[in-house]
Amino acid sequence: MNEIALIHDAQQGDLDAFNRLALAYQDALYNTALRVLGDSEQAADATQEAFLSAFRNINSFRGGSFKAWLLRTVTNACYDELRRQKRRPTTPLEPAGDDDEEMESPRWLADSSMTPEQRAEADELEHAIQHCLNALPLDFRAVVVLTDVQGMDYGEAAAAIRAPLGTIKSRLARARLRLRECLQEFWELLPAAFRLKTEAHP
C-alpha cells in the first residue's frame, strides 16, 4: 500500500483511496477507542465518527505520521462521546450470559484458538486492566492507551492529544503508577503465568 499516494488521492476527494486507508488503520483506531471508552458499542461509534471526521478534514493533514493523525481524531471522538455520556448517562446494553448476567467480555469477541481456560484467564486479565483504565482520569487514560497500548512514542502521543512533551511524560508516569496500584487489588485474580512473568523482573 502506497500510503502517501492514497493520502494524496483522498485529499483530492477520492473516497476509495480513503477507504483503503480506513481498512488499514481501523483496528488501531477501534482498539484505542475501546480502551479509552471501555465499551465496544461506543468504541465502534467513536471509530466511525473518527473516520468520518478524518475524511472531512483530510486536507488539514500536513504530513508526518498519518496513524498519529488518525489516532488524534479517534481520541477527540472519544472525548466527545464521554462528554455526551456525561450529559445523557445511559445504561450499557451488553450481551447476557446463560445466567442472564451481562458479560463484559463476550465470548464472541475472544480468540477461537485459545482453550477455554486460557480464554477465561485472558478475559479476567483484560477485565481487570480495563477496570483500572476506566478508573483513570480521561487525560491520563488517553496518554497511557496511546503510548503503552498503541505503542506510540512521546512525540506522536503529544501530537495526538495536542499536549506538550512534558505533559505527556508527567501524565504517563502518574497513569502507570495509578494503574500499578489499582492492579494490586486484582493481583490474585490475574493468571498465574502472567503473575510469574511480571513479578520475575528484577
Binding site: Q26, D27, R35, D148
Partner: peptide
C-alpha cells in the same frame, strides 16, 4: 510492571 501488563492487553479486531 504496569507497562508490561498494559502490553498484555489483546488487540481486538474491529
Amino acid at each position: 510492571q504496569a507497562r508490561a501488563i498494559l502490553r498484555q492487553l489483546p488487540a481486538r479486531r474491529a
